[in-house]
Design a protein around this nucleic acid. Structure first.
Lengths: 257, 257
DNA sequence: CAAATAATGTTATATATTTCACAAAATATA
DNA sequence: TATATTTTGTGAAATATATAACATTATTTG
C-alpha cells in the first residue's frame, strides 16, 4: 500500500461511512483513477472495505455481528425443528407472554411468530434474545447473568426469583433428553433453575423435543413428564410415547408434528 | 409474491436487519429452499432487500432501514472512536473487572482488548454482550431486563442494586453530551440508573467521549464532570477542556487521543 | 537528464453470477 | 380423483465481475 492509495481509501471509507454501497465505476471517478487501481487499493487495505458484486461496501466486523447461528447441530435436524416449532407457534395468541428456552430447538419458533401479534418474550438465552430483539412488535425481557458459551445462555442466583415474579402464559421448554420414567434432562446445571422456575410459574408448559432425544438421559434432570401440559415431538418414538399416554387423564397431551 | 415468499423475505430481512450481508447459499439454507427461489422472492419483493455479488443486502433506501439505527452514528466517527478506545484499552490490566457502557463509542474497546488477559466484563448493552460473548478469555456478566432497541440495551429496577453488588475495577462510561457546568448526559432515561450505579461502585471511572459531543446537552443528565477520574476525548474542544482543568487538583484527568 | 523504480492503465482470460426456459413437484380446484 | 394452477428446482446460456499479465505512464534518484 502506497501513500496515495491510503488517501484514496480514506476518501472511499468516508463515502461509505453513511452505509450503503459504492459502485466501482463511481469510486474510480471519485478518485480520478482507473477501476483497477481502486481494486488494488482495496486489496492492499486492512480489510475495512471490500468488494461485493462490483460495489464497494464497508466490511462488517464479525465481532459486532450477533450470533445468528445455523450451526451444525441445527443443520441436521433443521427441518424437524422447523416443523415442531410451526406446531408450537400455532398455540400462541395475541398478547401472550412467552418463555422461550435456550438451545437451537426453539429458534425456528421465533421465525414462526406472527408478525402482527403483540407479544412479550422472556428468555435467558443470548441467541434467542438477539433474534427477538429484531422484532418490532415483541417486547423482550432478557434475563441476564453470567454467560455460558456452551449453551449461549445466562445463569445466576436471582434468575429463579425473577422468573417467578413474571406472568408467563406459555413456557416453551427444550431438553437434551426425555425419558418416560425419569423425565426431562439437559446438559448444563445452570439451566435447571430457570427451566424449573418457568415450569412452576407458567400457565401452560410446552415441551418441544425432536425424536432423536426421546428415551435419552442427560446429566441434569429438571422436570418429570407430567410437569408438561403439552409435548410436541415427532417420529416413531414420538408415536410410541403418544400411544402409551392414550387415555391417561392426568398426563401431558402428546402432539406429533 | 406468494404467501410463503413473504415469510421467507421477512426472515431474510431479519437476518439482515443489523446490517451486513447474507450469501445467497446461506439464505437458501436458512429457508430450506433452492437459491433460485430466494432469487425469485427478492425479485418479487418491494425492494427492501436486493442482491449484490451473490449476497443479499438491505437496500440503502432509508425508508426501509430501522427507525433508529446506531450503525449510522458509528460509521461517522468510527476512526475517532477507535483512537479513543485504544487509549482507553491501555488502562486495562490483567484480571480487571470492567464495566462497559452502551452505545457505539465503546465497541472498538472490545476489539482492542488484549486477548491474553483474563478479564470480566459487566454490561447492560446487547451489542457489547454479543461482541464480548465471542472472547474466550473474558467472563461476561450481562445485566438483563426489558430491551430498549433505541440504545440496544436493557433497563430495569434491579439493575442498580445488581451493579452495586459487583466489584468493578474500571468503569468505561459513554455519553451523548458533556457540558462543563451541567455534566454528562444521555438520550435515554433508562440508562441513568446503570450509569450512576457503575460510577458509584467502580474504583476508577473513565468517560470516553468524542469531541462532537463536547459542550452538548442531552435530555438525561447522569453525572457531574467531577464524577470521573479520567476523561478521554479529542479535538479542539477536547484541548480547551484539558486547558481549563490544568492545575485543578480535584477534577478529572483529561487525556487526548 | 536518463536510468531505475514505482504506480497505474489496458487487455485478455478465468471465474462467478444472473437470467432464461423448461421440467418437476406441490397445491388448489372442479 | 383428475385436472388446472401455482410454486419450486435444474441446467444451459448470457452476462458481469475478478484475476493476471503485460504495456504505459509517472515518480524518484544519482
Amino acid at each position: 500500500m502506497n501513500a496515495r492509495s491510503g488517501q484514496r481509501l480514506a476518501r472511499l471509507q468516508e463515502a461509505l461511512s453513511r452505509g450503503g454501497t459504492l459502485p466501482l465505476t463511481e469510486a474510480a471517478k471519485l478518485c480520478n483513477v482507473s477501476e483497477m487501481t481502486i481494486r488494488r487499493d482495496v486489496a492492499a487495505s486492512d480489510g475495512s472495505v471490500k468488494f461485493l458484486g462490483g460495489h464497494l461496501i464497508m466490511a462488517e466486523d464479525p465481532l459486532y455481528r450477533p450470533v445468528y447461528n445455523l450451526d451444525e447441530e441445527q443443520g441436521s435436524h433443521a427441518l424437524v425443528k422447523q416443523c415442531l416449532c410451526q406446531r408450537a407457534a400455532a398455540l400462541i395468541e395475541d398478547g401472550d407472554t412467552l418463555f422461550i428456552d435456550c438451545g437451537t430447538t426453539l429458534m425456528p419458533l421465533i421465525e414462526a411468530l406472527d408478525r402482527d401479534m403483540t407479544l412479550t418474550v422472556v428468555t435467558y438465552a443470548l441467541n434467542v434474545g438477539n433474534a427477538v430483539s429484531r422484532l418490532p412488535n415483541v417486547r423482550l425481557l432478557l434475563l441476564g447473568g453470567l454467560y455460558y458459551s456452551s449453551s449461549m445462555s445466562f445463569g445466576g442466583d436471582e434468575m429463579d426469583a425473577a422468573i417467578r415474579r413474571l406472568g408467563i402464559n406459555k413456557a416453551f421448554i427444550s431438553a437434551a433428553g426425555l425419558h418416560a420414567g425419569r423425565g426431562a434432562s439437559c446438559f448444563h446445571f445452570h439451566e435447571v433453575a430457570p427451566k424449573q422456575a418457568a415450569i412452576a410459574s407458567a400457565m401452560q408448559r410446552i415441551l418441544v423435543i425432536d425424536d432423536s432425544k426421546l428415551d435419552v438421559i442427560r446429566p441434569a434432570f429438571f422436570a418429570s413428564l407430567d410437569s408438561f401440559d403439552i409435548i410436541i415431538t415427532n417420529g416413531e418414538a414420538g408415536l410410541a410415547l403418544q400411544e402409551s399416554h392414550q387415555g391417561v387423564a392426568a398426563g401431558p397431551q402428546i402432539l406429533l408434528a
